[in-house]
Design a protein around this nucleic acid. Structure first.
Ligand code: DCP
Ligand code: MG
Ligand code: MG
Length: 767
DNA sequence: ATCCTCCCCTAC
DNA sequence: TAAGGTAGGGGAGGAT
C-alpha cells in the first residue's frame, strides 16, 4: 500500500513515491519528475522524452525485443490502420443527418459518449441476474471503502494482447486521425506529452507526432467492463457501479481493523481484475467514498513514469513470460488529515468543475487546504446554500451520503448535437420525430410512464466561428418543457402525439432550421408503470370544432374555507388572511382599503383596523412543531373537485377537468396531448365541443349557462364562490376569470378574442 | 412555503 | 473527414 499514513508507510518500505505530490496536470517536463525519474526540463522536453523512451524500451524489456522503437511504432500504426479499414462504421462517407437516411441509429452506434451513457443499462442487467445483495451487515469496526478505476480504460483495451508491438508507445483511442477527431482515452505514455481525453487529434499530433490512434472496439470494451464487474462482484455484493470502468465497494465486512488486511484485499482484487480482463486497475482505499475516490488519483500511474509503465508492462508482459511485478502497486490509502489531501488542487474534488474552480480562484483558493479556510458564509455568497454546504464538507473529507447502490431512474432521453444541419423545417421535423421515437423506445424498455417532456435545441451562436467540421460549434442551448403524459408502449397514435408535442416545443424556441445544430428530448417525472387511460388517444377531437375553454377560480379561496369552519367571519367585515410574514388572501373590501398580497402583516394591520376589519391567521397546528397547516384547504379543494366531477358527469357531452392548483380548474376540452396524469382529475369520454348543444355559433352562450349552473351549485353545496372565464384558449380563459372577479366583474366573463370582450374589466387588466 | 420552468454546472 | 451522450443537483425567478 502506498500511503500517506505514517504507520502504513513504515510497513511498506518498497514504496518509492509515497511523498511525491499528486499527479496533476503533468506536461512532459513535469511528468518524469519526482522520485520515479530524473527530470527532463527543457523546451524540447517532448523530443527528449521520446528519445529516452526509445532507449528505455530497448534496454528495459528484453522480452520485447528484437524490434526497435521505430519499427514497432510503424507496426502499431499499421495495426490501427488495418482495424480502421475493416471497421464497417468507417466505410460510408455519410456524416450528417442530410447524407444518411439512417443517421440517428448510425450515430448512436458510433458514439462513444452514447456508449458510456447507456452502459448503466447493461450494468442493471448484470445486477438483475444476480441474487439481490442481503442488507449490509451491521458495522463492527471501521468503514472501509474501495474506489476501483481502470487505468486508461479504452486505451488499455485497445492495446491488450498486442504488447509486443505496443509496449511503451503513446496510444490514444478515437475514430480517426483527422484534426477534429476527439480522443476518448490516452495511455500514460501519451499523457506524458500532455495528451488528454476530450482533446482533438489535431492538437494531440502536434504534441506527439508518434501518437498511435486506435479505433473503438465497443464490443471488446463492454466485455472487458463485464469481466471487471464480475471480478468485483465476486468479492463483495456491496458495490456501487459508477461507470464502465469504475466502481465503489464497501468492504468493511471483509477486512480487519488493520491496513495490512486492506492492502492484501486491494492487491488481490487488482490481480484478479488483471488476470480476468488483461487490463490494469488502480484502487483508492479510505474510510468513505469521497476519500477513496480521491485516493485513486494518487494510486494512478505517473504519466511517462517508466517504473509505473514498467510495472504495467511487466504485468501485461506475462503474455511473454515476464514476471508480474507489484512495485508501484497502484493502491493508495488516504486519510482526511493527510497533507497530500490539503495540497490537492480544489479542482480535483468531485463536484468542483471548471466554473467552480474559476469562482474559487477569484477568492484566492487553489488547494483543498485553501478551501478549508473559507468560511461557510462566504461560500454561501459564492455558490448558494446547497453547494456551499457540499464544498465545506468536501474539502474536509466529510462524506455521509447514504449508501444507495441502485438509485431509481428519474428520467430518460436521447440527444444528438453532431452532424446536425438542416435546410428546411420538414427535415428538422423528421429528425425531432426520430429522436422522440428513440426516447420513447428507451422509456418503453423501462416500462415506466413519464409525466413531463423537455426538449433541448442547440442554436448556433451568430458569432460562432465558421468551421469546416460537422460538430455543433458554439451554440446556445435552449430548453422548453411541458407537462405531458407518456405511457410505456409504442402505439402509433401515442408516438405521433408525443412527436407533435416535441415539435411544438421545438418550434417554441424560435430557432430556425438553419440555426439548429442539435436536438434532444427528455422524459421526466417517471412513475411506476400503471394502467393508463386507453381512450385518451383514440378519442381525438375532430380538428374542425372550435374550442371553448372555461377557467374556474374560487374567490378568496382560503378565506372562504375559514368562513366554512367559522361562520361568524361572514359578518365580520373586511378580512385579511396571513401566515408567517406574509399576507396571502384579501377580501374585496380589504383590497379596496389598500391591502396588497404579500404585504407584511404589520403593514396590513393598521389598514384593516381603520376599516373595522379582521386579520385572520392561516390554520396552524402545534404538533410535531408549530407550523401552518393546509389540511382544511386541501379537504375543501378535494370536495369541490369531486362535486365538479359529479356535476359534469350529469351534463350532456364530455369534459376534461384539469386541476391547476388548489383552487383553480379549467375545462381543457382542447387538450389531448399536453395533459398531465397528476393533474387530470377526471376524464370523460367525449368533449364539450363534440356535443351538438354547445357547438356552433352560440357556443359561448351555451358555455355561459353551464358556467352559471356550476357557480350556483358550488355556492350551494361547497359554500365557495367561483369566477369563470370563457374563451377559445387557456390564456384568455384565465384572464377572463380575473376580469370576472367581484367587485369589478359579475362572476362570469366571456373573452371571444383578445380584442373582443364585452367586459370593461377585461380592458382594464393590469400588465 | 412550495412548486414549476429554464438554465447552469457537474460526473461519468 | 467522424460520430460533442446521459443523467442528476441546484439556483434564479416566477407562480399559487
Ligand atoms: N472525456 C472522456 C472521458 C472518458 N471517456 C471514456 C474513455 C475512458 O477510457 C473511459 C473511462 O474514463 P476515465 O475517466 O476513468 O479515464 P481512463 O480510464 O481513460 O483513464 P484513468 O486512468 O485516468 O482512469 O471513459 C471518454 O470517452 N471521454
Ligand atoms: Mg479509468
Ligand atoms: Mg473512470
Amino acid at each position: 500500500v502506498e500511503s500517506d499514513a505514517e504507520s502504513v508507510a513504515s510497513t511498506v518500505p518498497d514504496s518509492d513515491r509515497g511523498e511525491d505530490g499528486p499527479p496533476t496536470e503533468p506536461g512532459p517536463e513535469e511528468s518524469a519528475a519526482g522520485p520515479c525519474e530524473e527530470k527532463a526540463d527543457s523546451a524540447p522536453a517532448a523530443q527528449e522524452l521520446q528519445n529516452s523512451l526509445v532507449e528505455e524500451q530497448e534496454s528495459a524489456f528484453p522480452g520485447l525485443q528484437p524490434e526497435d522503437y521505430r519499427a514497432r511504432l510503424q507496426a502499431a500504426k499499421a495495426v490501427a490502420e488495418e482495424l480502421r479499414s475493416k471497421e464497417p462504421l468507417l466505410q460510408n462517407g455519410q456524416r450528417t443527418v442530410r447524407d444518411n437516411p439512417n443517421f440517428v441509429q448510425t450515430f448512436f452506434k458510433a458514439s462513444r459518449l452514447h456508449f458510456i451513457g447507456v452502459w448503466r443499462e447493461r450494468y442493471e442487467e448484470i445486477l438483475d441476474s444476480l441474487p439481490p445483495p442481503p442488507p449490509r451487515p451491521a458495522l463492527r469496526g471501521k468503514s472501509v471503502f474501495l474506489h476501483i478505476d481502470m487505468d486508461c480504460f479504452f486505451a488499455s483495451v485497445a492495446t491488450r494482447g498486442r504488447t509486443q508491438t505496443f509496449a511503451g508507445l503513446p496510444v490514444a483511442v478515437a475514430w480517426g486521425t483527422g484534426s477534429s477527431s476527439e480522443i476518448s482515452s490516452a495511455n500514460y505514455c501519451a499523457r506524458a506529452y500532455g495528451i488528454r481525453a476530450g482533446m482533438w487529434a489535431g492538437e494531440a499530433f502536434q504534441l506527439c507526432p508518434d501518437l498511435v490512434v486506435m479505433p473503438y472496439e465497443f464490443d471488446a470494451i463492454m466485455e472487458t467492463a463485464e469481466l471487471f464487474y464480475r471480478s468485483v462482484l465476486e468479492t463483495t455484493p456491496y458495490v456501487q457501479g459508477i461507470s464502465c470502468d469504475e466502481v465503489f465497494a464497501d468492504v468493511s465486512h471483509l477486512v480487519q481493523d488493520d491496513v495490512r488486511s486492506w492492502q492484501a484485499l486491494a492487491r488481490k482484487i487488482r490481480a484478479d481484475i488483471w488476470s480476468r480482463s488483461g487490463c490494469v486497475a488502480s484502487i483508492g482505499v479510505a474510510k468513505n467514498r469521497l476519500l477513496a475516490r480521491l485516493a485513486t488519483k494518487f494510486a494512478k500511474p505517473r504519466p511517462g513514469c517508466r517504473k509505473c509503465g514498467k510495472a504495467a508492462l511487466d504485468r501485461a508482459g506475462e503474455e511473454s513470460g515476464l514476471r508480474p511485478c507489484d512495485e508501484h502497486a497502484g493502491i493508495f490509502l488516504l486519510e482526511e488529515s493527510s497533507e497530500c489531501l490539503a495540497a490537492l488542487p480544489a479542482r480535483e474534488l468531485p463536484g468542483v468543475g471548471p466554473e467552480s474552480e474559476k469562482q474559487l480562484q477569484k477568492s484566492g483558493v487553489q488547494t483543498v487546504g485553501d478551501l478549508r479556510t473559507v468560511p461557510l458564509a462566504k461560500l454561501r455568497e459564492l455558490f448558494g446554500e446547497k453547494q456551499a454546504q457540499s464544498l465545506f464538507r468536501l474539502c474536509r473529507g466529510i462524506d455521509d451520503r447514504p449508501w444507495d447502490p441502485r438509485p431509481a431512474r428519474k428520467s430518460v432521453g436521447a440527444q444528438i448535437a453532431w452532424g446536425v444541419r438542416f435546410e428546411g423545417s420538414e427535415a428538422l421535423r423528421r429528425f425531432v420525430a426520430e429522436l422522440t421515437t428513440e426516447a420513447l423506445r428507451r422509456l418503453e424498455r423501462h416500462g415506466r410512464r413519464g409525466s413531463s417532456l423537455t426538449v433541448k435545441v442547440w442554436k448556433a451562436r451568430p458569432d460562432a466561428p465558421h468551421c469546416g467540421g460537422v460538430g455543433s460549434g458554439g451554440c446556445d442551448i435552449l430548453s422548453r418543457s411541458a407537462q405531458f403524459a407518456t405511457d410505456p408502449g409504442l402505439a402509433p397514435a401515442a408516438v405521433e402525439a408525443t412527436c407533435a408535442e416535441a415539435w411544438r416545443l421545438c418550434e417554441s424556441t424560435g430557432a430556425t432550421p438553419a440555426q439548429v445544430r442539435g436536438f434532444g428530448i427528455h422524459i421526466g417525472g417517471l412513475e411506476k408503470a400503471q394502467p393508463s387511460i386507453p381512450s385518451l388517444i383514440e378519442s381525438r377531437k375532430p380538428q374542425s370544432l372550435e374550442k371553448v375553454i372555461l377557467h374556474l377560480d374560487v374567490d378568496c379561496f382560503f378565506l372562504a374555507v375559514h368562513e366554512k369552519y367559522d361562520p361568524s367571519l361572514k359578518e365580520a367585515g373586511p378580512l385579511v388572511l396571513w401566515q408567517y410574514n406574509d399576507v396571502i388572501c384579501i377580501s374585496p373590501e380589504a383590497k379596496a382599503a389598500g391591502v396588497k398580497k404579500h404585504m407584511r402583516p404589520s403593514e396590513a394591520q393598521p389598514l384593516v383596523d381603520s376599516i373595522g376589519g379582521r386579520m385572520v391567521h392561516a390554520f396552524s397546528r402545534r404538533w410535531p412543531g408549530p407550523r401552518v397547516w393546509y389540511g382544511p384547504y386541501q379537504t375543501i379543494s378535494r370536495e369541490m373537485f369531486a362535486h365538479l366531477h359529479r356535476l359534469l358527469a350529469e351534463e350532456p357531452g364530455g369534459f376534461i377537468l384539469e386541476r391547476l392548483s388548489i383552487d383553480e380548474a379549467r375545462d381543457v376540452s382542447d387538450v389531448l396531448a399536453p395533459y398531465s396524469p397528476e393533474r387530470v382529475v377526471c376524464f370523460v369520454e367525449a368533449f364539450l365541443e363534440a356535443s351538438e348543444a354547445v357547438a356552433g355559433a352560440d357556443r359561448y352562450a351555451q358555455a355561459k349557462s353551464l358556467a352559471q349552473k356550476l357557480v350556483t351549485e358550488l355556492q350551494a353545496t361547497i359554500g365557495v364562490r367561483v369566477s369563470v372565464g370563457i374563451a377559445p384558449n387557456r390564456l384568455l380563459a384565465k384572464l377572463g376569470s380575473i376580469a370576472a372577479k367581484p367587485p369589478r366583474g359579475d362572476g362570469i366573463c366571456i373573452v371571444e378574442g383578445p380584442d373582443s370582450c364585452a367586459s370593461p374589466a377585461f380592458e382594464r387588466l393590469e400588465t
